[in-house]
């Protein structure tokens, strides 16, 4: 099939970007979206032009590196799918496709379609962990965890940290990302000792990074490739309220 691509090009973090038009022929429907971009890039290199820089790695939907906004939707039109797993059979001959980076103030564009998502790492560094040194653990079965809670914690832990939730949110709110981690640990007995500290410091960091406020529009959940539920945001609101009120600092 033949496609018209409009792709965001930006030389580096300081320069201004623009949408660039490309025609691409001979796209097979068995290609993944990123393989389609590979084909374009090979073509561009042969023409002596700089290929389109985009983030990608595992190409099986789990590393969370790929980060394209396709036709206005992070990761594109297929639900519960990262753009590396999106296949061209979801498009048809003659389609125009708009490809942009994940956008947010906290995700500055580095080049073309690559944005800097290190803010998410800093949120985790602020408290997204259970403080247990190596070899401090007790036997794995010492603390039973009900299957329901373990499953729910796993639902939250499924987050791949791609940042699509933030890219999709008109407010660039990172609540779903933060809530997933806060909830995972709040649901498990191992997470209890730091439960209050964790939510307070992660939310504080989230504010410092310049992410917006949640307005409960749930676009985050809709684009999440791992379908992390907004119920975790509600849970985090509860956790935060409780922790805030009891906080003595």
């Amino acid at each position: 099939m033949k496609l018209t691509l409009y792709i965001w090009r930006q030389k580096n973090a300081k320069s201004k970007g623009f949408m660039e038009k490309h025609q691409l022929d001979g796209v097979s429907e068995d290609m993944s979206f990123l393989e389609m971009l590979d084909v374009l890039n090979e073509q561009l290199i042969h023409e002596g032009k700089e290929p389109v820089a985009f983030d990608h790695d595992c190409r099986e939907g789990i590393c969370g590196t790929c980060s394209l906004t396709i036709n206005g939707t992070p990761h594109g039109p297929e639900a519960a799918t990262t753009c590396c797993q999106l296949h061209m059979r979801k498009f048809k001959d003659g389609d125009s496709i708009y490809i942009e980076p994940f956008r947010a103030k906290a995700f500055p564009v580095i080049k073309d379609l690559i944005s800097d998502r290190s803010a998410l790492d800093r949120i985790i560094q602020a408290g997204g962990f259970i403080s247990v040194n190596t070899n401090q653990a007790q036997d794995a079965n010492a603390l039973p965890v009900s299957k329901e809670k373990a499953d729910l914690a796993m639902d939250a832990a499924a987050c791949i940290g791609c940042g699509a939730c933030i890219a999709a949110c008109p407010n660039a709110s990172s609540m779903l990302f933060v809530a997933a981690k806060v909830s995972q640990f709040a649901l498990l007995p191992q997470g209890q000792p730091e439960r209050k500290r964790r939510v307070l410091s992660m939310v504080e960091q989230m504010h410092q990074e310049g992410f917006g406020a949640c307005t409960n529009i749930y676009e985050c959940e809709a684009v999440c490739p791992k379908q992390v539920s907004v119920r975790f945001i509600a849970q985090m609101n509860r956790e935060y309220m409780g922790a805030y009120m009891k906080n003595e600092e």
Partner: peptide
Amino acid sequence: AKPQKYAVTNYV
């Protein structure tokens, strides 16, 4: 928090 909008926006 979101200074730059997308060229195309498509809410799900």
